[in-house]
Design a protein around this nucleic acid. Structure first.
Length: 632
RNA sequence: GCCGAAAUAGCUCAGAUGGUAGAGCGGCUGAUUCGUAAUCAGUAGGUCGGAGGUUCGAUUCCUCUUUUCGGCACCA
């Protein structure tokens, strides 16, 4: 049993109650930020039964950092209120790596304001205000915040389904609505914080409501951790695919084609290499590849439901009397192919793939390099099958996906299982069956997964596959969706073993998602240093002086003959200049050719990390052929 | 789409209370022929994102607009 109020203090003896402070003191504990009492995170000021199960939260405890950051968020709000008394505070939660506070204020915050706010925060920490928790009735709390003109707080409390709420006071300087727990004193908050940026954010995440100013900040217990975090951000910035794409001359974007990528020769080589690799993997798994129209009459989109559900995102065109839409997805077209002729259960499963270019009119504010574009190609396929084939197709897909991710250098990925949403089509029996089969199949493959409750597509449950990159960032790429709906809407049938007509089940699936986005992920994951088989230029042959150009040419010709993507650098430059040049371009290997090589009929292969080996001419070719081979 | 910021040479960036712009790298030309991440010299690049307005004069001030960046919302 946990009580938040000090009013109970006087009864504590008689009821065998003890306060958190007493507990800490009597157990000789130090540097305790908060407690966990019978499993519930609690302030040190709390009073609880002597028999309660207690765990101390220190800096080392996972919750310690979170609680400290939360208190720091309150301190930031207090600082802002002191500097800008008219500011109204909304919410200030802890997030990964820090916290933010949403504020409504006449003053427009800019980074120039940060030092003053930070200074004020340090003053508040130094003043070491006591932080106390108070339980008040909902009505009192509403009255209190209304009196302070904190109308966001009033709205929050009104919407809470409780009779009492807890307030946190920084002595008489500042009060916030909060569930807690918090540090006992502002002085225990770390001074290793930094306000990072401002941004707009809708009140309660609703785009119809007021846009507030959000101040993001980070905070750590030690300077070292703060510095590490800043270094990590800098590292991420260096890996930015837009920057690397420019440096490696892979692609560009420009005003006149906002949201579409201009792929340069090197970028397109990477693109084709990736696509060909996936093609081969698909072929091995019994997929067939098709190509369907770019523009399709509105009528088809009306049948599929896209016209109703997805129209704002579609580019529309016209021709004579007809309204056409540029396809945002391939699925309706694949059903058209399925529908040609008659299909029997013997034709199933039919795995139909297409690297079709899709266009979606994404909101301008969401565009981001090649990661979020308006025109893109997915490694898309639809598997037409019978219900009893869902299990084996799921397993087959999961195996394919694991192989592809591993080949591309992603060892870790997680799986989310999204089950039936509230708004859905199809009977509960069908959903039971689909979820059951899908879940059973993932389990049989041996993949761990988490449940994403109610997040399935309206037509069926789905699996989502999330990659972890070298900076430990998550990227949702793969998807596997069970669809009972579209084949029916668009009139796809097959003749079953029973001689009756049935609608096939359609499995929508992609491993990489959009190739544009995936290439962005690859570039950031590898910081541009792509594995040999993906590198647009695999090797540059560089001579030390022009005296060795003939010998170098022989090697270069042999490389080209072997299908290795090579360039030949015979500029009258120093070898160190050439090495720097091609290192910046992230070419994985250079062949260095000078007197030593020519007179011994050898080649020196130098990797980007500086390591190198000297090999006989033919052995060098053999080695390069081997290491340039795609992993199939 | 919303809030905020930004847009100057191919890239990274500097600059002027309003008098038509500058550096480094890169490019080009020449010299250098060299052994592991920048050889030297010379030279050419700009409607200062676009359109209007104020002004004798605007890249600079104002308005609109496009795009980009950071978030929010969106991501069937």
């Amino acid at each position: 049993m946990v009580f938040g109020s000090n009013l109970l203090h006087c009864y504590s003896r008689r009821l065998n109650m003890i306060s958190g402070f007493d507990y800490v003191k009597s157990n000789g504990l130090k540097k305790v930020l908060a407690l966990i009492v019978d499993g519930i995170p609690t302030d040190l000021s709390a009073i609880f039964s002597e028999t309660a199960k207690i765990e101390a939260i220190t800096k080392e405890h996972p919750l310690g950092l979170e609680i400290m950051r939360h208190t720091t968020a309150h301190i930031m709000a207090q600082a802002i209120k002191e500097l800008y008394p008219s500011a109204k505070i909304a919410i200030g939660p802890v997030i990964e790596d820090g916290f933010y506070y949403d504020i409504s204020c006449e003053h427009r915050f800019t980074p120039d304001d940060f030092p003053a706010i930070e200074k004020k925060m340090r003053e508040i920490i130094k003043a070491d205000y006591k932080i106390t928790r108070e339980i008040v009735s909902k009505d009192d709390a509403i009255e209190f915040f209304r009196g302070k003109n904190e109308l966001f707080k009033v709205e929050l409390i009104q919407d809470l389904n409780v009779t009492e709420v807890s307030l946190y006071h920084h002595e008489d300087k500042f009060t916030d609505l909060c569930r807690g727990p918090h540090l006992p004193k502002t002085g225990m908050a770390s001074t290793h914080f930094e306000i990072m940026k401002t941004a707009g954010a809708y009140w309660r995440g609703d785009s119809n409501r007021e846009m507030l100013q959000r101040l993001y900040a980070t905070s750590w217990f030690s300077k070292e951790e703060l510095d590490n975090y800043i270094t990590l951000l800098e590292e991420a910035e260096k890996r930015d695919h837009r920057k690397i794409g420019r440096e490696m001359d892979l692609f560009h974007l420009q005003e006149e084609a906002s949201g579409s990528v201009f792929w340069h020769p090197r970028g397109w080589t990477l693109y084709r290499t990736l696509r060909n690799y996936v093609r081969k993997r698909l072929a091995k798994d019994g997929y067939v590849e098709v190509c369907t129209p770019q523009m399709v009459d509105k009528v088809l989109w009306e049948q599929s439901g896209h016209w109703e559900k997805f129209r704002q995102n579609m580019f529309i065109s016209e021709s004579e009397e007809k309204t056409l839409a540029i396809k945002p997805m391939n699925c309706p077209c694949h059903i058209q192919i399925f529908k040609q002729g008659t299909k029997s259960y013997r034709d199933l499963p039919l795995r139909m793939a297409e690297f079709g270019c899709c266009h979606r009119n994404e909101p301008s504010g969401s565009l981001y390099g090649t990661m979020r574009v308006r025109s893109f190609v997915q490694d898309d396929a639809h598997i037409f099958c019978m219900p009893e084939q869902i299990n084996s197709e799921t397993k087959k897909f999961c195996n394919l996906l694991s192989k592809i991710y591993r080949d591309l250098g992603f060892e870790k990925f997680s799986v989310k299982f999204s089950d039936r949403p509230e708004k859905r089509v199809g009977s509960d029996e069908i959903w039971d069956l689909a979820e059951d089969l899908l879940q059973k199949a993932v389990r049989e493959v041996g993949l761990e997964y988490t449940i994403n409750k109610g997040e399935g597509a309206f037509y069926g449950p789905k699996l989502e596959f999330v990659l972890k990159d070298k900076l430990n960032r998550d990227w949702q790429c793969g998807t596997f969706q069970v669809d009972f709906n579209l084949p029916e809407r668009l009139g796809a049938w097959y003749t079953g073993e029973d001689g009756e007509k049935h609608h096939p089940i359609m499995l929508h699936r992609a491993v990489l998602g959009s190739l544009e986005r995936f290439i962005g992920i690859l570039l950031e994951h590898y910081a541009g240093k792509l594995p040999m088989w993906l590198a647009p230029v695999q090797i540059v042959v560089a001579t030390i002086t022009n005296d060795y150009d003939d010998y170098g040419k022989r090697f270069y010709d042999a490389l080209i003959e072997s299908g290795i993507r090579s360039e030949f650098d015979v500029r009258a430059e120093k070898i160190s200049y050439k090495i720097r040049n091609h290192s910046v371009e992230k070419v994985p290997v250079m062949a260095i050719i000078g007197e030593n090589e020519k007179s011994n009929n050898t080649i020196t292969l130098r990797k980007m990390d500086g390591s190198q080996e000297n090999l006989a001419f033919d052995n060098a070719i053999d080695l390069l052929r081997k290491i340039c081979k795609e992993p199939l």
